[in-house]
Every structure is written in structure tokens, then in C-alpha cells.
Design a protein around this nucleic acid. Structure first.
Lengths: 70, 70
DNA sequence: ACAAAAAGTCAAATATATATTGCATTATGA
DNA sequence: TCATAATGCAATATATATTTGACTTTTTGT
């Protein structure tokens, strides 16, 4: 599933995928693939992303009801 | 870091590592290693564990202040 | 004290996240 | 329109999560 909430949080901070990737210590492609739902990041990476964006795990990675939309 | 909150949530439900592992679709060793902090699970696994235990990501995997206690 | 269940651990194998490189496409601003 | 930044998309390579099987240690109940 695409991670729209992550993309929105990043755009709110006005930073590119590449810049977020640098801050978090991964590659631009890794951030891109998470946003487009191409895979399943590790917990530590999720936490690093949350901290870089001032959010929590629930804010960015928790779906209250598993809506299988999109 | 050891994940005490996970262990407590599991014991509250009165299930063994092996039983949680079965419900979540992984190996007993994987659950054990997460509880003892030996590694870095994937997001999907964290979510599956949360759902099996009736908790959220923040409940089990978010540390408000990175206390490096363990 | 004894037996059985639960939990810790280790080595080797496999699956998959992540890196690297490179190119194509779509904004965006001058 | 042109240049540049930002994003998407693959192929291959590497690091690491997870499995498997087996053994030891600790807990728990009787």
C-alpha cells in the first residue's frame, strides 16, 4: 500500500525525498519505494523517518482499519 | 534494546512466544530475538504483532525519549 | 525432586531490505 | 523554451532479517 501519510508529512516539511534520505541515512530510492508502497521497511528505519519528520509511528505507519484501498 | 513492553503485552495475554509466533506467522526464534533486542524487525511484522496483541505501534515499539537503558 | 513447557542461543541456509548505478519522466522556475 | 530538480523505475550487488534444526537453561506445576 502506498504511504500517503509519509509523503504528506514530508511535503509539509518542504523537503525532497533525497533530503529526507540523507537525514535518515538511507538512499533516495529507499524513501521513494516506501512512499510508493514497494516494500516493507525495517522498524529502525521507520523510527528514524518519524523523528526526522517530527511524527510518531502511529502517525505515519499505523492504519486503524486495514482499508485495502488503492 | 530489549523490548519489555512487547513481553509484558504478551504475558498479559497469557500466550507463549511460540504461540504468538504461530499467530503472527513467524518462527519462535524471531519473536524471542525481538523481545531480547537482538534485532530490527520489519514494519509488517511489527504491525502483525500489534494486532495479535491488541496494541498499536506506539504502544509496543515507540520510545518517547531514546533512553538507552536496557 | 522430577517432568514438561517455555525461553535462550548458535550455526548454517534462505529470503528480502537496502545500496548502487544509470536512465526516463515529470514538475518547476528563469 | 530551456535547464535543472525531483521523482519513478529496473538490474545487479550486498547486508541483514528470518528460517531451520538442534541443543541448553530456566520456569512452572505436581
Amino acid at each position: 500500500m502506498k504511504n500517503i501519510k509519509l509523503k504528506v508529512a514530508r511535503v509539509e516539511k518542504d523537503i525532497s525525498q533525497a533530503e529526507l534520505a540523507t537525514r535518515v541515512g538511507v538512499t533516495r530510492q529507499t524513501i521513494g519505494m516506501i512512499e510508493t508502497g514497494k516494500f516493507n521497511p525495517s522498524l529502525q528505519l521507520c523510527i528514524a523517518i518519524c523523528k526526522a519528520l517530527g511524527k510518531t509511528l502511529n502517525d505515519l505507519f499505523w492504519e486503524e482499519n486495514d482499508n485495502e484501498k488503492n
